[in-house]
């Protein structure tokens, strides 16, 4: 992939750094209902990730779907050790998702999900830097 950008710059939302394989999606994600707490498997019928696991992944989604309870489910994924290690979005995520991510120490960068989903393959190793607002291909 010579010539492809190896670093993308977006907006830092939740601090911290984490790396893992890319899990790109083109559908909005709801933490209340789309992921099974116990397994990390995506079970939501509206998600194109249905059947895959968010555990240990860099979850790349255009947006989060609204629910005031999202923070609790993201925190439950963390408690069950089934959480994504980082989240990348296009739109600003819901305040509840941001609260859950701060509580769970899951970095979030926004403003680049579509570009990233187009330019990296599923499973490519990424490092997300929630302090700088960058994603790097490892």
């Amino acid at each position: 992939m010579s010539g492809a950008p190896r670093e993308w710059r977006g907006r830092a939302i939740v601090r911290g750094r984490a790396s893992g394989p890319a899990l790109p999606s083109r559908t909005a994600f709801s933490f209340l209902g789309d992921a099974d707490i116990r397994s990390g498997a995506v079970v939501g019928e509206m998600s194109d990730l249905r059947g895959q696991s968010v555990t240990g992944k860099v979850l790349i989604v255009p947006a989060t779907r609204g629910s005031a309870g999202a923070w609790r489910f993201l925190y439950q994924l963390k408690q069950h050790n089934t959480h994504p290690v980082a989240i990348v979005t296009d739109d600003l995520p819901d305040p509840s998702v941001v609260q859950g991510a701060i509580l769970s120490e899951v970095p979030i960068v926004s403003g680049m999900a579509k570009q990233l989903a187009a330019e990296v393959a599923a499973g490519a190793m990424l490092e997300v830097d929630g302090d700088e607002g960058t994603v790097r291909l490892l």
Binding site: A68, G69, A70, W71, R72, S96, Q99, G100, L103
Partner: peptide, 15 residues
């Protein structure tokens, strides 16, 4: 609170 009492609140979570 927002609609009946006139207080000001977001839909919040743990925070």
């Amino acid at each position: 609170a927002n609609s009946v009492l006139g207080a000001k609140s977001n839909r919040d979570g743990f925070f």
